[in-house]
């Protein structure tokens, strides 16, 4: 890692957060993501990954510490702009796709930003093109396959032209073909990307850099290959490679 010379797209400093019921999920997370990077956040279930994601666009506000997106602090006054800059693809596409048709769903975000008419149509079709779903624009989302729905979910954030796309468990519930198609789409995008996952081979395939989140702190970060081959580190944070998978031969 070189020292950053530009403003990082994501800049988290000592972010700590406790839920109202007293359960503390994050204990001072420091992390930076530079423009154009693809970073995986790895960690076992309950490590605070999803909590972290919800801090990136201000749905949760840190109890202590700060979050900034391209230098803009995540505070109430900036939320609208922050949410344009940070696109989050949630784990369950059924949570994300709620309009009657794919087209309306992709249009939902830009419409909230005031885009209308021909410009809106153009943006929507461009985003659908990027994920290879343009032919499905007028279908209701619940008639699509799971993999197609996930791709439309990616389009719903792409259309906002965000500075960073954050994916929560992008490969969950996908069959191998859909999983590979999504990987092709994601690697083809010219965008800063952060993905939260415990699918380690997927992280290795897509993200040169990884961050290990464990018990609410950044336990390690570095190149994904280095992390996946550090047995002691992997073991101490409940990270396991699937049976038969060898990161060296990929």
């Amino acid at each position: 890692m070189t020292t950053p010379v530009t403003t990082p797209v994501l800049d988290l400093r000592s972010v700590a957060f406790a839920y109202p019921d007293g359960h503390q999920a994050l204990f001072g997370v420091d992390l930076q993501v530079q423009r154009g990077e693809r970073v995986a956040v790895l960690g076992p279930n309950g490590a605070g990954k999803t909590t972290l994601v919800l801090h990136l666009n201000g749905i949760l506000q840190p109890g202590a510490g700060s979050v900034a997106v391209s230098g803009l602090p995540v505070v109430r006054e900036n939320l609208q702009e922050i949410r344009r800059r940070v696109g989050i693809v949630f784990q369950d596409p059924d949570d994300q796709l709620f309009m009657g048709s794919v087209r309306d769903d992709v249009a939902f975000g830009p419409r909230n930003l005031g885009v209308r008419g021909a410009e809106l149509d153009r943006q929507v079709m461009r985003a659908l093109d990027l994920v290879g779903m343009a032919d499905f624009a007028d279908r209701p989302p619940h008639h699509l396959s799971f993999g197609q729905r996930r791709r439309v979910a990616v389009a719903t954030v792409l259309v906002m032209e965000p500075e960073i796309i954050v994916l929560d468990e992008p490969s969950s519930n996908l069959d191998p073909a859909s999983r590979r198609e999504l990987a092709d789409i994601l690697t083809g995008l010219d965008v800063t990307l952060m993905m939260v996952t415990h699918d380690l081979p997927y992280a290795l395939q897509l993200c040169p850099r990884s961050i290990v989140l464990s018990d609410g702190v950044v336990a390690a970060q570095g190149s994904t290959l280095d992390i996946l081959t550090d047995d002691a580190l992997m073991k101490s944070h409940r990270l396991e490679l699937p049976f038969g998978f060898d990161p060296h031969v990929c």
Binding site: R84, I88, F90, F108, N112, M160
Partner: peptide
């Protein structure tokens, strides 16, 4: 949450 995340 997903709606808010898209600027609703």
């Amino acid at each position: 949450l997903a709606m808010i995340a898209r600027g609703y």
